[in-house]
Design a protein around this nucleic acid. Structure first.
Lengths: 229, 229
DNA sequence: TCAAAAGTGTTAACCATACACCCATGC
DNA sequence: GCATGGGTGTATGGTTAACACTTTTGA
């Protein structure tokens, strides 16, 4: 079956930059291409948008299909459309970025023939297409957005110690933060709940575990609070 | 001539939300559709992306063709792709927003059969497609971005009094600002140049005219200045 | 001389920053 | 008992916010 149009139409894809955070590393999820073009190169997960499918739905479907990940924070990033991005035909790609809690989401390749893996941002392989550029734009967005919206919690487990939150911010923002000031600030905002639990199996004093309360955040937001780190 | 593909491709358009500022009103540029669908309704300027054309280039071309406006601040806004945005076929629209200096840009309809006009944001006609939604997203972006990037100057004439700049900020942010604090803050940033000229033909004390110096801004930026109103 | 907008400083409250030691735990 | 990270308070300087009157000009 073929589809014909009176004037040429580009293909439209979605690509996703999926970030994960692990101890002290920001990581990104890549899949290894099994076909030309760029066979064997690593690439952002993604694929063609179906003709009756919403863009975000397409991004979620592709992630589910290629990596097994579902139910994650996903937001549109930018649309890339230079004429020669793809050697096969004109392809316009609507890129999304996503944040996942690494421990909750065990990735699985779509098939044995396909590789899926997390790569630290500091040690990436060469990427297919213009995906290095897409990734760069995603990093900038994350770095900008994490400072004034509480999206960092999407990268942490449900319950986390403050030190881990601080490490996350230090990693993303690429600068050290003062421990006392960081705690003072984040706790003063009153949307972290002390779970009354503490770390288990650590070789030092166990830290309290906190939980982000989105309702409380929303309430404070409505009252004019401005989140900022 | 027709174009055929092994699987269906959506059409891709660009749409532009062009903002202008005039005395005390934020305005948006609309064109009246001369054809179905939505014949006679007002809509955002835009049109189909050509098959070998960059997205931003397409947006600029459409603006030039439909309204005569060129050389303006233009930035990608968001990509809208719900399956039923357009009754004819699947259309994915990459929206841009633009800022122009009203007095420099005299608009002209593409043909006598076509209407082009500025509408105050506070008094808009019903719009075609999902353009009301697009416009809303553009307003939010402008409101967010004007606070921490010096894009407001794109809406003012080359030389302007501080009171006009303040009025612009008050209009976009929808809140009054303190005159003394506003002047202190903006002048302390050292990227406004006193042109040594004053207003002409005003029925009161003439104000000094200032000019935004992008080079100075860039220099300060590199030194770590953070613009914020 | 009146109307209309331009221009100008000070104070008090708040917020950001810098900084160092004791505590709890497991090995 | 030591190594590891957890947890805590204060003082200082800078930034923001609130606030009202005089000046200039043209009509």
């Amino acid at each position: 079956m073929t589809f014909t149009y009176p004037y040429p139409h580009p293909a439209v894809t979605v690509d996703a930059v999926v970030f994960g955070f692990d101890e002290s590393d920001l990581k990104v999820l890549l899949i290894q291409r099994s076909q030309e073009p760029f066979k064997d190169r690593w690439a952002l997960p993604g694929g063609f948008v179906e003709i009756n499918e919403d863009l975000e739905t397409a991004a979620r479907r592709e992630l589910q299909e290629e990596t097994g990940i579902s139910r994650l924070f996903l937001e549109q990033l930018y649309t890339f459309g230079s004429p020669n991005r793809d050697p096969r035909e004109r392809v316009i790609s609507v890129a999304y970025y996503a944040l996942v809690k690494l421990i909750d989401h065990h990735i699985q390749a779509a098939s044995d023939a396909m590789n899926v893996a997390w790569f630290p941002l500091t040690d990436l392989p060469p990427l297919a297409f213009d995906h290095e550029h897409v990734l760069e734009v995603a990093c900038k967005r994350l770095k900008g957005k994490i400072r004034y919206e509480p999206i960092g919690f999407e990268l942490l487990p449900e319950k986390f110690p403050l030190s881990e939150l601080q490490r996350l911010y230090e990693t993303v923002l690429e600068k050290p933060l003062d421990k006392r000031n960081f705690r003072k600030k984040i706790l003063s905002m009153d949307f972290l709940i002390d779970t009354q639990e503490i770390q288990q199996d650590v070789a030092h004093r166990a830290a309290k575990l906190y939980r982000f309360d989105p309702q409380a955040y929303q309430r404070l937001r409505d009252q004019g609070l401005n989140f900022e780190i």
